[in-house]
Each structure stands twice: as C-alpha cells, then as structure tokens.
Design a protein around this nucleic acid. Sequence first.
DNA 1: CTAATAGTGTCTATTAGACATTATTGT
DNA 2: ACAATAATGTCTAATAGACACTATTAG
Lengths: 248, 248
Amino acid sequence: MCRIDTNYDDTMTEQAFLDGYNPHDFPVVLVTVDTVLLTWHEEQLKVLLVQRASHPELGKWGLPGGFVNQAQDHSLEASARRSVAAKTNVEPPYLEQVCTLGSPERDPRGWSTAVVYSALMPHCASTPFVESVANTQWQPVNQLAQLEIAFDHRQGIETAIERYKQKALYSFVPVFALPELFTITDLRKVHEALIGTAIQRKSFIRRAEASQMFIDSGDVRSERGRPAVLYKAKPAIGGYRFVRNIEL
Amino acid sequence: MCRIDTNYDDTMTEQAFLDGYNPHDFPVVLVTVDTVLLTWHEEQLKVLLVQRASHPELGKWGLPGGFVNQAQDHSLEASARRSVAAKTNVEPPYLEQVCTLGSPERDPRGWSTAVVYSALMPHCASTPFVESVANTQWQPVNQLAQLEIAFDHRQGIETAIERYKQKALYSFVPVFALPELFTITDLRKVHEALIGTAIQRKSFIRRAEASQMFIDSGDVRSERGRPAVLYKAKPAIGGYRFVRNIEL
DNA sequence: CTAATAGTGTCTATTAGACATTATTGT
DNA sequence: ACAATAATGTCTAATAGACACTATTAG
C-alpha cells in the first residue's frame, strides 16, 4: 500500500499514535522553495539568479530560495516571499505557485523536491544591501543558454515562462513585470517577448480599453516621436481575462 | 539568509561536503503525493476518496496517495501513478500536477507538504481487488459538503476542479473523464457540469468539428429519441486549445 | 521639414450565440 | 402518431486582424 503508517490499531487514540510517531524513523525527503523572479528591463525579460556560494553546485547560477525554515515560515508561499525579500527588499506585486519538481537525482543530498514559485515585479537593483557574499544578478532570459544553471532550475524557469506565455494570450498579468507607470506600448512589448510574435497595436489597445483596467495617470513620457500616455493598472487587473485569446 | 547549509568553506570539495551532510541534522518536512481522481458517472462528476483506516484523521475521507516511497518512486508523478494504480488497477489517460499545499498545521505529525496531482479517467469499479480494508468510493463532487474530509484535501479537490473548469472553457481535456466511446452530448454535459452553465448545442458541435479531434466510430447509441453518433478522441486532443473561450 | 513613435478609423472575415428546423429513433 | 433526443440551417452581433491614416513630439 501507499502509506507507511505503522502501529496500525483500531483501538489506538490519535494522541497515542502521535506520541509514538517520529518522522526521523522514515527516509527523509528534502524540501526547498525556490522562486523564478522575472522583470522587464532594457527591452528584455530578465530573471533574478544567485551564484551559489556553497555546495552543492557551487559557482553555478540558481534560483533564490532554499529549505523551508520551520521557525519562520508558516506556509510555502511565506517561504517564497521571505527569500524574495532577502534578495530584493521588495514585496513582489504578483506571486503564484508554478510547479513542484522532485526526484532522487536532482540534488546529491538525496530525494528532494523543489516547490517552484514565480513572481513578477518592477525592475530594481538586486541585493541593495550586502547581506551575503552571494552574487545576485538579473539575467536576460534569452541568454540563459550560456549560463551554468544549478540543479534542475532551468526547467523551473522554463515552466514559469511558459505559464506567463499562456497568460500573455488571455490576460494582462505580464503588467506586473513593469513599473507602476507604463505605456501601452511597454506592455505590448512584454506580451510580444513572451509569446514570441508581433501583436497588432490597434488590437492590443482595443483589448486594453475593453478591460477598463487601466487608469490614465495624466502624465506622458516623451522619448522619440509623439509622447505616450502613462497608465497605472487597477488592482483587479490580475483577475481580468480576455474572452478571446490573442492568436498566434 | 535562506539556506541552512552549514560548514561553508570555499576550499571544501563537493564530495567532502556531502560526506559531512546528514539530512537528519535538520528539521524534517513530510512529503506526500495525493491525487484528485475524477470521472463522469451517472450524469455526475465524481471523485475517488478513501476512508482513512489509520491515524491521523482516522475515519475521514481523504485523497488516495501517501508518502513518497523512496524505493519505488523515481519521481513525484511516478508516486501519483503508483497510488492511483493501487486503487483502480488502471492507468489514467490524463494526469497533471495541480498544486502543492504546505504548512506546519495541516498534519499533526509536523510541517508537511502534499503535492496534489489530478487525473481524469473513465469510470470503473473502485478497488476491484481487495488489498486493504480501506473503503474506497466514487463520491459525487456536489455532495462533498456532507462528508468529513481529511487534512486540507477539500482544498486540493476544489483547486483541481477549478483548474478543470478553466480547461473546459478552452479545451476538450474533460473528455478524459469519459469512456473511450462517447457522444458529443456526453462531452457537453461534462463541460456544463464543470463550468456550471448551459452551452449551446450547436456552438459545442461547431467547436468539436473545427478541432478535428473526434473520430466517428461508426457506432451509435440509442436510448430515447434519435440515436447519437459515438466518437473516439484522437490522442492529440489533450493539447488542443480553442482560440476563443466558451463564454460565461 | 523629416523621422519617429503614439494613437485612430474603418473594412472584412470569422464565428459564437440564439433559436428555428429537420432527422431518427422507441413506444 | 407522438415524444424525445440528435443534428443542421441560418440570422445577427461582436470583434480580431489588417492596414491606412492622423497626431505630436525632437531635432
């Protein structure tokens, strides 16, 4: 059978069972929580990676995260938020669970699982305070092939990006990778980077208007050409869905 | 910082590090893999539940699954497949990871996580062979409010069903809850049960034709009224997506 | 003025929903 | 014949893509 519960006895109370239960009697599965933190910066999608300063996989680039801290973490999401805050000193405006990886081979320390979260946030300087010697950097996702990635974190990154690609087709969730004020063209470029094709400007603007999820800030941004209106997103934008997907 | 790696030393080899590493030196997180197994039977969506025959939560209804078996399971998905096979003696045609629940309170044995998978399959008799005394039954999902559900498995079930509700809007994935041969009306009823509203027959048939994912079996099923054509689904149906969602 | 970018007008093809109509069975 | 269910015909409204056109800035 599946459960390895021992000492099965119909007449035993739950308390008596728990008194006799020691989790160290069983083979241990290691549990980490790691986060794929993405942002939009310099016309590119970038992911925050940490160069590992300890074994195993020393020197390779990995996702921020680590073992659940039983003293501090009251949930998996709390663990993800803690490790993001440690690297960026910022609360990400969008965070979701992506997948859980697990096998006996992925970590040399033994059978392990990584609960992978993903967050989107405005670009900020990484590691604004020096708390560790670890090298933390925003890496362009298009150039990850040239980096040595620790464990199976490359798979976690790919799964997260694939998820956002789907979301880019039916929602404005990618907006959370932008600063508070952004232009519709900024947002369209993020969507285009995710789905890998151009989107008609008119179509994208129509969707934005139909959603009623964008507030005209009153400001504009002028670089080359006609100035672009800067918008803010309503908080409910994360829940908005198109009825019709962007076509590929 | 986040990692609780100890013995940090730049000059140590990875092997020396691993030799000194004992997972039992750290607080243990328990890991179970549990599966929300759904099917369509008697015009209802049903979930396979197991009445727990051991502590904790003895007597309550829980998801089939259990601790990762390090001897048998080479992955999380393998663990899910093993526990499904133990209860149904069948390989489910559709299986995906849904979410991972984790907290210090969800299991009295300590900080624990449950990796929740969900599967769809044709209805079959539960526990066709008597391997345990556990009571395994298909329970209508509309009547779960009246059952005592173990741990936070109710949340896992709700998350899985919500996921399938979304999939019912943009795919034919719910087809995997039906037998090999089914009518388009059968499939429409599954979709309607998931999304909670009626779907126009004509619209649904149009989507089915446009997808080219259905093979006319040549047979029909006659109950009352005009006989309905029985179809088979092409294997690729799991990957098919509507460009336009079913509207609510 | 020109280049560059933002934003609008508008045509057309597609298609979902609505619902009426026809088809095919059992009794 | 009638009830019941399956399957089709067809009208209309909505809207995405395409692309031409206008607007507003810098230099």
